[in-house]
């Protein structure tokens, strides 16, 4: 545990001093600020528009972590050989990967928490500018639940970065594979539904159906974590759904980290 703690803390510190993080925060807060002003054009849907845009911005801000920071903290760590400083200490490769993941866990959590603060500010600003009658449907429980699930999906992507960084030798390839995982994770649900619908004149071969079936079980259904529009409409998100998705994400992350450790243990760091 000592090794995991030391690596997590080092990664958190290194990540916090990365300029990308401040760029992301600034851009996201600016975007949120603009949303409040623009939402005035959408008369009765002011709260919905503000929430929709702000929560999308929080997710976007969270997504920059796996694609920019996580790749830098992990794949580049291996590519640039900074990893030698860590692995020549009494730290196993598994501890290193778990420590890195927890470092990213903390950074992503902090960023999304700060941006959630931005959402609160935007709602407050909206109420101040347009009056509280437009904000009666806002449910903070749903907003927090939706953003929490969004954070979980970003954590799954962080775990993918860990996996792809251990099996590839270049950071570019790791980024590309993470992007593929993201796209597949968000679209696989739609593809499965499309295949379930019998459309006349279109014949879908069995091999395609089988491939989709395999992909469906290999990649996570990231679309299931996207409940932002429900929260924006003031709908409640059942607690059991949140619990099931949290268990699903945790199990997925554990499997990815175990696989990463298995692959990484066999890798030469020449």
């Amino acid at each position: 545990m000592r090794g995991v703690y030391a690596v997590a803390l080092l990664s958190f510190k290194e990540g916090l001093r990365h300029r990308v993080l401040y760029g992301v925060l600034l851009a996201a807060l600016l975007l949120m600020g603009c949303t409040v002003l623009v939402s005035g054009f959408f008369l009765r849907d002011i709260s919905k528009v503000i929430l929709d845009f702000c929560m999308a911005t929080v997710t976007l801000g969270g997504l920059t972590i796996p694609f920019f920071l996580a790749i830098h903290l992990l794949a580049k760590d291996i590519e640039r050989r900074t990893i030698f400083t860590l692995l020549t200490r009494p730290i196993s490769r598994g501890q290193y990967l778990i420590g890195k993941f927890f470092g990213l866990f903390l950074i992503t959590g902090l960023i999304m928490l700060l941006l959630t603060g931005g959402v609160w500010l935007c709602l407050w600003g909206g109420e101040f500018l347009f009056g509280s009658r437009f904000f009666v449907t806002v449910s903070w429980v749903s907003i927090v639940a939706a953003l929490f699930l969004s954070w979980l999906s970003v954590l799954i992507l962080n775990a993918f970065v860990v996996l792809w960084s251990t099996v590839t030798t270049s950071s570019f390839l790791a980024t590309l594979l993470t992007l593929f995982s993201y796209v597949i994770g968000h679209s696989i649900d739609d593809v499965v539904r499309f295949l379930q619908v019998e459309v006349t004149m279109i014949k879908i071969s069995d091999s395609i159906r089988m491939t989709v079936d395999v992909v469906k079980y290999l990649f996570p259904n990231l679309a299931a974590f996207d409940l932002k529009s429900a929260a924006a409409h003031g709908l409640s998100i059942p607690f059991t759904d949140v619990l099931i998705l949290t268990t699903y994400a945790t199990a997925y992350i554990v499997v990815l980290l175990v696989l990463s450790t298995l692959f990484f243990n066999r890798r030469d760091l020449a």
Binding site: R2, G3, Y5, A6, L9, L10, K13, E14, R17, H18, R80, R81, T82, F84, T85, L86, T88, R89, P90, I91
Partner: peptide, 29 residues
């Protein structure tokens, strides 16, 4: 590895951290 020190060829340390941060990390491990 408790009793081992290693200096790699062309050492690469974490750019955004100070040498103090690196040594604190080593102390923790």
């Amino acid at each position: 590895r408790q009793s081992l020190g290693y200096l790699p060829e062309n050492p690469c340390l974490y750019d955004n951290l100070s040498v103090n941060d690196h040594l604190i990390f080593i102390a923790r491990t």
